[in-house]
Amino acid sequence: MELTETWFLLLSAALFSIGLAGILIRKNPLIMFMCAELMLNAVNIAFIAFSERLQDIAGQSAILFILVVAAAEVVIGLSLVVLLQRRNRDLVVDDLSELRG
C-alpha cells in the first residue's frame, strides 16, 4: 500500500468536519476557538499534501501565513472571551444576543 496525497486529503476533510461539528455543537466560546484551530490545522494538512505532490514550496509558505493568522485570531478571540467573562459570569454564546435585530 502506498501513501498518496489522497489519504492526507481524506484526513484533512475528516479533521475539518470534526472542527465544524464542534463549532456548531459546543456553546463555550473557548472550545469554539479550539475547534476553529482544528479547522485551520486541517487546511494545513491539505496544503502540505498538495505542496509535496506538486513539488511547489508555495504550499509551505501558505502554511506559515495560516500560522500567523491563527496566532492573531487567538489573541483577539481570547481577549474577547475575557471581556465577555467580565460582563456576564458564565461563558455561553447563546446568551450573547444584544446585536439581534
Binding site: 486529503l9 476533510a13 475528516a14 468536519s17 456548531l24 459546543r26 456553546k27
Partner: peptide, 24 residues
C-alpha cells in the same frame, strides 16, 4: 451550562457529515 440541546447536536453532526461527504 454547556449541555447543548439534542436538536443542536444532531444538526452539528449532520452538518459535519454532509461537509465530509461533499469533500469526498
Amino acid at each position: 451550562l454547556d449541555l447543548p440541546e439534542r436538536s443542536q447536536v444532531v444538526a452539528g453532526i449532520v452538518s459535519g457529515l454532509a461537509f465530509f461527504g461533499l469533500i469526498c
